[in-house]
Design a protein around this nucleic acid. Structure first.
Length: 486
RNA sequence: GGGGCGUUGGAGUAGCGGUUAACUCGUCACUCUUUCACAGUGAAGAUCACGGGUUCGAAUCCCGUACGCCCUACCA
């Protein structure tokens, strides 16, 4: 079984934008296959598009991988036997490879201008013909070439596609796939700026870096033919391809910033934890065949295999992610939850940074009350704000409760009762409030609801007595006695 | 236009020739209860895209159709 040998997999993003949820899954699967087989996971930066390149994107990719624990065995910053791992630092190798392909007759220089190509494409489309390079430069005579060179014309290197025949390969997730090579045009290998295109750099590096499995998105499936042909022209058999089904947005289109928050940084900012995200993404397109749904990264790296990958695209639905995230939060030890939430509380200005040691028990007590309600860490500030600030963020319904007829008397009664409570424990607090209820001969809710509103500014939240116990006597009674906001 | 890939309840998946088509999320109801949430119980929701075959028997195999998506750049 090919998945048993030590696999050398790679994640080869183009640093042109923020790390996307689909990229994360591709990286995850590659990482998992490497771990599973005791192989190596390689990070390679494909920064050959110098118009779209951005340093922030490059740093963002590395930071994202580290944040998720998907560290690379070879690649930028850590090096390795096939360094450098940044394509812009490997230019001479690609140029040499292109020269070799030209010498072998597998490629040729093309002097066509961008304008001519644009016109040609427009004409082809107008005539409803399949677009593609018309191969004018493929048949240039040596004299014509020499003349063009003498003129100093800019050129690109194009691959000379076989004019007939087909390419068949065995995709690890989809089985046999065949493409008619005559349908493909003479694509560009080397651009006029001397940089290689993906079609040259990727297969060249995959061979050079001894990659055994190429795991990438389905949108690359038609490139496989080109990649295989280039690999063979370079003198080697290509690695195993595994094309992953796409992740779609709710609109069934390829997930993008357009149809949802698909950037990893958004999920990070919202307070989804990396292990949850990875667990969720692992299952979005892969199944072990059992009913298990909660996996640790460690467990996944023991169980992952290419044959469990699904063939159909998956729609990204965050409601299940929320469930998974909330579950992880509920199962988390309180101290850990506090560690993870404090940065968010600090970000909202609710807790000082660094947090004073004596304030930590209070934060933990607060979080213990909201733990079962938290779906993601980023919700912590909104849910706990009233524990940290006396100026409440009034919810409209809560405001109505406090402004209701007779509410202020009830609140004053409860404040008095709490002041008179012999001690500040859950039991005595409850007893004090219940006493007010009994004295007034009303239903408990008629006292509890306005009190909750006055103390928290909200109509939902933790048990009232628990909240009051943590909040403290002074803050509670002060809030009960102040006049309802207008 | 051409080519490729895909199609099991609203979402993610299991099942791969014989099952009442399974599990999770979501939805709804009930229980608990001071609210929300948690937890528990239960329910609704799928003629397995459609049409033909093959077979005693098909979600499962074959062909076709439809629909969806992806690719079709000196972008990856």
């Amino acid at each position: 079984m090919s998945t048993q040998q030590a696999a050398r997999t790679r994640f080869a993003p183009s640093p042109t934008g923020p790390m996307h949820i689909g990229n994360v899954r591709t990286a995850l699967y590659s990482w998992l296959l490497a771990k599973r087989t005791g192989g190596k996971f390689i990070l390679r930066l494909e920064d050959t598009d110098r118009e779209r390149y951005s340093v922030e994107a490059e740093e963002g990719i590395k930071a994202a991988l580290r944040w998720m624990g998907l560290t690379w065995d070879e690649g930028p910053e850590v090096g390795g036997p096939h360094a450098p791992y940044i394509q812009s630092e490997r230019l001479p190798m690609y140029q040499e490879a292109a020269d070799r392909l030209i010498a072998q007759g597998n490629a040729y220089r093309c002097y066509c201008t961008k304008e001519r190509l644009d016109d040609m494409r427009a004409a082809q489309q107008a005539a409803k013909l399949p677009p593609g390079y018309d191969r004018t430069c493929r048949n240039l005579t040596p004299e014509q070439r020499a003349a063009n060179e003498a003129l100093g014309l800019k050129s690109v290197v194009r691959f000379a596609m076989p004019l007939e025949g087909s390419v068949t390969f065995e995709d690890a997730v989809r089985g046999e796939i065949t493409f008619d090579s005559a349908l493909l045009d003479d694509f560009v290998l080397l651009k006029s700026d001397g940089y290689p295109t993906y079609q040259l750099a990727a297969p060249f590096d995959d061979l050079e870096m001894e990659i055994t499995h190429i795991i990438r998105g389905e949108e690359w499936i038609s490139s496989a033919t080109k990649n295989i042909l280039v690999s063979r022209a370079l003198g080697k058999e290509p690695p195993v391809y595994a094309h992953l089904p796409l992740i779609l947005g709710p609109d069934k289109k390829k997930l993008s910033k357009r149809n949802g928050d698909a950037a990893l940084s958004d999920f990070q900012a919202a307070g989804y934890m990396p292990e949850v995200l990875l667990n969720f993404l692992a299952l979005l397109g892969w199944s072990e065949g059992t009913d298990q749904e909660i996996y640790s990264l460690e467990e996944l790296s023991q169980k992952f295999s290419l044959d469990g990958i699904t063939r159909h695209p998956a729609i990204f639905d965050s409601s299940k992610l929320d469930w998974m995230s909330g579950l992880a939060i509920r199962q988390m030890p309180l101290a850990e939850l506090a560690d993870r939430c404090i940065p968010f509380l600090q970000g909202a200005g609710l807790v000082p940074e660094p947090i004073p040691a004596d304030q930590r028990p209070y934060v933990e007590a607060v979080l213990a009350l909201e733990q079962e309600r938290l779906k993601k860490l980023g919700e912590a500030p909104a849910l706990t704000e009233f524990f940290f600030r006396d100026e409440l963020n009034w919810e409209e319904k809560a405001l109505k409760r406090v402004q209701a007829e007779g509410a202020s008397e009830i609140l004053a009664d409860v404040a008095d009762a709490l002041d008179a409570a012999p001690e500040w424990t859950l039991e005595s607090i409850e007893a004090a409030v219940r006493a007010v209820v009994d004295r007034r001969g009303v239903k408990a809710g008629e006292v509890i609801h306005p009190v909750r509103a006055a103390v928290t500014g909200r109509t939902v939240g933790p048990g009232l007595f628990d909240a009051i116990a943590v909040l403290g006597r002074d803050r509670t009674t002060k809030r009960l006695r102040r006049n309802a906001p207008a």
